[in-house]
Each structure stands twice: as structure tokens, then as C-alpha cells.
Design a protein around this nucleic acid. Sequence first.
DNA 1: AAGGCGTGGCG
DNA 2: TCGCCAAGCCT
Length: 352
Amino acid sequence: MRDDLKCMQTAQTLLAWYDANARVLPWRVAPFDRAQGRAPDPYRVWLSEIMLQQTTVAAVKAYFERFTALWPTVQDLAAAPDDAVMAEWAGLGYYARARNLLKCARAVVADYDGVFPHDHATLLTLPGIGPYTASAVSAIAFDAPETVLDGNVERVMSRLFLVEMPLPKSKPELMTLAQSLTPQLRAGDYAQAVMDLGATVCTPKSPACGICPLRRECRALAAGIAAELPKKDPKKPKPVRLGHVYVSRTIADEWVLEKRPEKGLLGGMLGWPTSDWNEAPSARPPFTSDWHSIGEVRHTFTHFHLILQVHTAVTVAVPEGAVLRPNAAFRPSDLPTLMRKAFDLARTTIEN
DNA sequence: AAGGCGTGGCG
DNA sequence: TCGCCAAGCCT
């Protein structure tokens, strides 16, 4: 293990790099402004961290702006209707995050008087907040000396310390190494500095080692294998599932949708009726109409590929439990991407 | 504790 | 075209 002085110097090198290179982000208080005493809004820090789970900065920006425009405070969000929040989250993916987002906002208002807890242990008890997010909120919003360990930090530590054990087995060691670098002061800036470095310099493929502030101390670079780390366990192949999706409009110009069950894939989201999805799906439509098959949509989820045959109809019958959305009030952007793909294919046919 | 859970960009 | 990957959490 490296000595404390060397760790402190590494942290200071990263902070100096961050002072000069911090990206401007809607939820971020720039290091200069932080130094002037301007504190980040914990609500915005928390919201951004939930959105950023397994999601790129580029994808999050527009969603963050919309959410904070619609719901500027945690009280506003807690008071929002479930369906409105799910509709705004549509397209961002991992919809359990949106369900937990609301639960968490309501818990903060009901149990903590609308004030986010500062400490890691209490944050961990809130819905949707795990070890990473608890550390991130605690450090970034409150400057607590907590260590964040996300995909970026795992990669930076693997390379800096030449950790050749594959993920996820190496996580405990990576956490120990990351903790050894975490400074007592400016922990929030430091957390963002390591993650920014991983996102912009110490990238998964072809890292920009030539401009890296840690190039002189990086053991993987010295060994010439920075791009090979971190090693990872092999991934399982994704099976292909088949199914049918039914996009229809009533003779009164209402789209025939359904609200999906709260748990499971696309849980709690609006969607078109579908068959089951597997090797040999049922071809029986959800209700009787003059269905026309118009093509297929392909979509890849985390653990399988999906091919759905798209059927359309203008219908008189309406199934039990349907959500009827008048055409004038229908926003395709309220749908998860799979369902929007089916609509995009169907609309050209059904609107003529 | 290993698998479920979205989506878009990139090489 | 296709696999990889992104500021993970929950069960």
C-alpha cells in the first residue's frame, strides 16, 4: 500500500486537474463557486445521481432540465401524480428508478421535513439509494469524506494500481484503494474529479493517457496495459424473444393503451397490448378487431433481444382495463422506447 | 448472490 | 451489424 503522503499528493493532483477542467453541468456547482461558499442543492444532486445510474451525461441533461423545470423542489416532486412522473421519465430506461424516485421524494418530505439526510447510513435507507448514490449525495451535496465507487472509479483504480483481478471480484480491493485516496477536505469536488477523469480521459477504450494528470503514477500505463484494464468476467449471450404488439385507435379517435404492471419489465409504464414474449408467443390478439400485420420492430433489453410483429386496427371493441388516450392528448414521448418504436411504425399506416 | 432491469452511442 | 458500455439498485 502506498503511504499517506503519496495518496494525498495524488488526490491534490486530481483536484488541481478538476479545478482547470471541470465540465459545466446543470446540477454541478463549479469548483470556483464552491470555494466561494456556494453549496449545491441536495435535491438537484440527488435527482441527477438517480438519473445518472447506468446512464450517460448526454442522455440525462434534457431529462434533468425538464424535471427541475416541472418540479423545482423535492416538495413539488413529492406532490406530483405518479403518471406524470412516469411519463416524463419515459425513454430514459430502468423505470424502477422513477418509481423509487417518487417513493424517495415522498419519504424525504414525510419523514425528514423535506430536508435530505446528510449521512451515508440514513441515505442508504431511502428507496433507490444504494452504496454509490449514498456516497455521492453525501460527498457532493454535503462534502462528507465518503468514497464513491462507480464504473469510472473502478476503471481509474484498476489502472492506477494495476489491479489485474477481474470485476466484480475485485470490487472490495478497488474500494479500499479508492478510500486510500479520498481526501478529508473537498470530498465533493474530489468525487466528481475522479468520475470526470474516468468519463473523459481514463475511458474504457483508447484512454487518453498522454494528457492524464496521473500519467506519471499510473502503474498500468507503465506496464503498457492501461487499455486492457479492468478485466471483466465474460458475459452471457442474449437470447432472442418473439412477440406481437397491437397498436389500435377507436372510431372515436382514441389510442388503445394499457398501464403495465408495477413490477417487471417497463413496470408502471404506458404501452400497447402485447402477447407474451418467448420462442413461440401466442398469436391470439388481446381483443377482436380487423387486425393487419404491418411489419416488425426490434429492440434490445439488458438481457435479451426482442422482435415484435406489429399489428394495427381501427377498432369498435375496447378491452377491459384499457387506457383510452384521445389523439389530441396523446404524446408518443410518454411511452418507453420499445412502445414508441411500435407507434412510429404503426402511425404511418393507421393515419391513412 | 446472481440475475432482472433500458437505452443510445460508439468502434 | 453487433457487442460493449454508461455517475447501480433491488431481490
